[in-house]
Nucleic acid binder design. Structure first.
Lengths: 336, 336
DNA sequence: GTGAAAGCGCTAACAT
DNA sequence: ATGTTAGCGCTTTCAC
């Protein structure tokens, strides 16, 4: 816990020179730099972030705002962010926002402000106008992953296209009775995701000449959510669809488990496609539209670093590519 | 972003009084306190943590060191920590440590020090002696969840007892050919967990008069890990066990999926017990030894707050209770 | 109960 | 290339 002053004294230079030598910048002779570095190492010196932040106004710290931690998509994003951040020498402060409005307000009005984060990454959070203002008032780079934030940078996949791609695959196999199992609007995730995946599904169906009918069922974005909805929508043999487009792999896996529980063969009697590329997809032979949340996390950090380094808050929107990975969970329908 | 000075001026008091009024402590008249509070609210004042930290040496920030984020146990612990921390007005800075020794060293020698965290919580990380020294050198409260750290406070379940409980349940049903599917020693999780769960299993087996044989198979602590190990150990009908004690619910679920894939009826032909109480356990009717990682996270924070408030670094060890939740995944063996 | 003043450890002008 | 100086915004003696 030695101070810069001690390092300077030990190296026989002034605090200013020591600071310059250690920060890498400015005009310092190679000899001095080496000497200061040696002293710092010997004394185990690590600069106090509080002191540095106080004077520079920067904290080398990025806030990540997320509604979930252990769901696959969110965990992957956070890991991607963490990897990129540690490479850049930044810390990650985690803020979990839930439904409770009081807690949410505390995060936005108090925690984010006082921590003086240099930037904020939001992961699929549906923000209220007040929350957006609070974020904008920070005057710092903000990037929204998954769900964009009005007027701010974003990283996303084309959710409409993802869902359309999945649907078109099933249509091309000859399915006509297809159900979309997607996000419950009540979830505090960005509702655009839910709406857009449903829209992509309906677009593809409409283009193929199918009229919208009883084509949607809501599920929580988890395996358990897909399972319970799956039991419900697959329970009645007469109304059962021959194919399902699930809004996430977790839902898709839950649906497959429900089907098996009901004695329905996948893919013989039911074809399933998911959107995500979850680790478990392979185990179930699940056909997926591939998105890579980890890359989204890393890209968010790149965007932020670019913004910090340039000093500009220009808005950018990055849309990541999709790919359909066909596996054994889809096949042509048996009857018709 | 107004400063304390502005608040003080607005309220017609000195900076000192404003500071005292807002920090809640000290001798300030009720009238002044109210006036200062009103001014602060009106100006949207939030104290700068950098400035406060610089002078107090405390940062209202706790570091969480974990090898994983999206695995169920870890996610739950982190969520528990986060909940308790936000209640206490603290931030959570996340440090993910992986195998890469360079990255690990950076976290311990650089990140943890410079961030001036007030305390550290480690979640099931196997620490090297150097890493333990680095942590101890912080002079801050440290509590290890899951895997204890030599000489520091810990929160854990009795891993030996947990595993024994699970095994005894299967033994009491009449099983004799029981396999333990547990943690791979190569995993950078605290290896004590793996060793202890295996020890508990063998203790119970020995007590029941079974001699140690080919009784263990390693798996990654994930559903996919349990699945692939499950396929392997259940593949041969002649050597197949009639019951399995899985070191975690995720492994157990993977094993059940593998069994189903192989056409083995659970629980008719195979009984399975897991340790965790994962959300998905219910879906599989999985019998579990219940531990509550979320509670462990919260308790870790309580411990830390007690330590911070008392100013003492006394070591404490808390062991959380276990409960066997018998569900439909276990039954008496068919042959034997 | 309140104010004046010192100083936490660092960086950034400004001199030299 | 290096040193001097002046704060960053807060908390905390120490007076009153």
């Amino acid at each position: 816990m030695s101070s810069l002053a001690e390092v300077a004294r030990h190296a026989g230079v002034s605090k200013a020179t020591a600071s310059r030598a250690l920060s890498g910048a400015a005009h310092v002779s190679e000899a001095t730099r080496a000497r200061v570095a040696a002293s710092a190492a010997e004394l185990g010196f690590v600069a106090s972030t509080s002191a540095a932040s106080l004077v520079t106004g920067r904290s080398r710290n990025v806030g990540v705002v997320t509604p979930f931690i252990s769901r696959w998509f969110f965990g992957e994003v956070i890991e991607g962010v963490e990897e990129a951040l540690i490479d850049a020498g930044y810390d990650l402060t985690l803020f979990r926002v839930q439904e409770d409005p009081d807690l949410r307000q505390r995060v936005f009005d108090y925690f984010l402000v006082r921590k003086r984060v240099d930037a904020v990454i939001t992961v699929c959070v549906a923000l209220s106008p007040e929350e957006i203002s609070a974020l904008a008032a920070l005057g710092k780079p903000v990037v929204g992953i998954g769900g964009g934030i009005a007027g701010m940078s974003s990283i996303r996949i084309d959710d409409v296209a993802a869902s359309r791609l999945a649907t078109e695959h099933l249509l091309s196999l000859g399915h006509s009775h297809i159900l979309h199992v997607g996000g419950d609007q009540e979830e505090r995730m960005d509702f655009h995701v839910h709406a857009q995946r449903l829209a992509g599904f309906r677009q593809a169906m409409a283009t193929a000449g199918h009229r919208p009918g009883d084509d949607f069922a809501a599920a929580e974005f988890t395996i358990a959510g897909g399972f319970s909805t799956g039991l419900r929508v697959l329970g009645n043999p007469t109304t059962r669809p021959s194919a399902i487009v699930a809004a996430s792999d977790e839902i898709a896996i839950g649906v497959i488990l429900a089907a098996r529980q009901l004695g329905i063969q996948v893919p013989r009697d039911l074809s399933v496609v998911g959107i995500d590329d979850h680790d478990l997809a392979e185990m179930f032979g699940l056909t997926t539209v591939r998105q890579v949340p980890r890359a989204q996390g890393r890209d968010a950090v790149s965007m932020i670093m670019a913004s910090i380094n340039s000093g500009e808050l220009t808005r950018r929107d990055l849309q990541l590519p999709l790919a359909l990975r066909v596996r054994s969970s889809t096949s042509a329908p048996q009857h018709g």
